[in-house]
Design a binder for these strands. Structure first.
Length: 157
DNA sequence: CGCATGACGTAGA
DNA sequence: ATCTACGCCATGC
């Protein structure tokens, strides 16, 4: 749990944004950062997911009340953390490959095809599964944003 | 309180 | 295309 109110707000924004990612789709840390209005801190997005509370079933009743409530809203089960990968389309290996493998498995369960690179890197094709709206779907009420979140994701070559 | 680290991204070389 | 340097800032020591 974040220490300062600011950080808490940031964490909340990140988790909420991640929850907007449709099943079977993926996006990047940087895009999440953009969506919540802090495009310069994709790294902090990673921090948020790293500190994502565990599943309620595993939560100890030793936790404080506020922490419990926080975890009830955002936890390993309610936030689709697996749908967030890095800008290169690769599942961040973090420190150990097991985490990435676990994430890959979670994605496959949603129908996302994960391919393995020459160096064992797990990657997802953004052209097929990418989700990069210009703004959060929930924010578009009254917002006269003229963006066209179409043709955002493109091929390479 | 200071220093190092990291689920990242971008700009330069 | 690949590699290095730096910004960001919550956590951990």
């Amino acid at each position: 749990m974040p220490r300062t109110p600011e950080a808490q707000s940031f964490f909340h924004a990140v988790y909420s944004a991640v929850q907007q990612i449709p099943p079977g789709k993926v996006t990047s840390y940087g895009h999440i950062a953009k969506l919540i209005g802090t495009p310069q801190r994709p790294r902090q997005v990673g921090v948020c997911l790293k500190h994502l509370p565990p599943s309620p079933t595993q939560t100890n009743s030793e936790e404080h009340a506020d922490q419990q409530e926080y975890a009830s809203r955002f936890n390993h089960d309610t936030v689709p953390w697996q749908r967030v990968i890095n800008a290169k389309g690769v599942i961040s290996p973090r420190s150990q490959p097991s985490g990435a493998l676990n994430q890959a498995a979670a994605l496959e369960l949603e129908g996302v095809t994960v391919t393995t690179g020459a160096l064992g890197e797990l990657m997802v094709d953004f052209a097929a599964y990418g989700w990069f709206p210009a703004s959060l779907p929930s924010d578009v009420d009254g917002g006269d944003i003229d963006e066209d979140f179409d043709s955002q994701n493109e091929d390479d070559t």
